[in-house]
Design a protein around this nucleic acid. Sequence first.
RNA 1: GUGGUUGUAGCUCAGUUGGUUAGAGCGCCUGAUUGUGGUUCAGGAGGUCGUCGGUUCGAGACCGAUCUUCCACCCCA
Length: 456
Amino acid sequence: MAQKPSIPKGTRDFNAVEVAKRSYIMDTIKEQFELYGFQPIETPSFENSQTLMGKYGDEGDRLIFKILNSGEYLKKISEDDYASRSEANFTPKISEKALRYDLTVPFARYVVQHQNEIEFPFKRYQIQPVWRADRPQKGRFREFYQCDADVVGSTSLFQEVEFIQLYDAVFSALKLESATIKINNRKILSGIAEVIGAQDKLIDFTVALDKLDKIGEEKVKEEMRSKGISEAGIAQLQPLFSLEGDFATQVGTLKSILNSSEIGLKGIEELEFIDGAISNLGLKTAQLQLDVTLARGLNYYTGAIFEVSAPEGVNMGSIGGGGRYDDLTSIFGKPDTSGVGISFGLDRIYLVLEELDLFPETITDATKVLFINFGEQEAMACLNAVTALRAENIKAELYPDSAKMKKQMTYANRRNIPYVVLVGEEELNSNTFTLKTMETGEQQELDLPSLINILR
RNA sequence: GUGGUUGUAGCUCAGUUGGUUAGAGCGCCUGAUUGUGGUUCAGGAGGUCGUCGGUUCGAGACCGAUCUUCCACCCCA
């Protein structure tokens, strides 16, 4: 065999069944998005590097796929630039475009660029692939789909409330019950950092805290020490490590820690509002859970932070995330525009539904009847019938070649086509159709109206 | 980017301390059956053992590099 062709690592081909299952998830999400009043937009696969670089932290920059310039780009590089061997310096000179890394930053760019055509508050959804130059592992790909819904131009906390309802609505529609929507607030994290005298180390602090349930209390403290957070500060965090109970109990503990922090108390107030509203409205199947250690997400979140974890027992990272960002559009020159949004990880939801066997059985809607081809004249008569069936919205096809009957029958069998129609010399003369039901093997001779009637 | 792991027929996998012509099941093709698939029977095709290099009289097996798979870390959906 010649050298086998292949696709880049972290990418996948999808067959017809996989496409059908993916469409099912996508259509479900889309339906709920629209039910909540979001309008679709799309943005290019690649953006100017400048738009993306520096928006996701150093780690993010590393994971952005850069596109090599066209033409004789090397001729424009100076000897000094070659000699410097510095990627930070060299890369921008040979690459001016990059594949999008998420949908939020391109959306911010879109909002700023089209601000005069947009009605605010602007509610948009976007379902498109994104690319990350990451090392693949379970549920982690280099090309994957995000399904985002965001609102910009409103600071109302009712948006947060509605997004929680939207998460609940989507997962309920997908029969993915008992999804846990974890919520936290960046202001609380800022408040805690302030209280322990580590305002300037907010990111290090939150990243360490985020690992609590994964690496445990001691290792978290260790990491905080190594990042230069004081022993006294860490001691003040002690109540956090044993935070338990329902929403109100946890909030009570937090209040006692944060009583000197204005911003922290503001965060608590926001949380209480959201929780109060959700309690009032109720959720169908999802659970809302306060998780103070939740710090995931990008540096641009300023208020609420959301993350949805897969149901217990399924080893999968988060299947959705989101939050409030007060300042995202200011990096593109439009200050004071608050936004909040959520994202669904299509590819991970797929894996979870697969693992829990939650896809509906009738997900593929394939051909219902295949006409066997006996020759030119017979095929012509078949095509007439096929056309009539299609006009009745019955999925029908004619085998294109007058191959051996065994071959044509095998073909129908393999494709799980439930009915086969035979039109040979005999049927041609009597203007009838022999309909065979594949499962039972039964056959009956019919005229066209009866055929349509049975197959409809 | 760091550490580990995987690769043998279309698929799932055997293959002994390195030793003739690399096997099985399933699938595929042909026929039994010229107007009947899914069952049965008979026969058949298909592999540069991921790739490149090395050690050896001899490599699917040992060593190195590289690609790929999966996993952990970093980070993240």
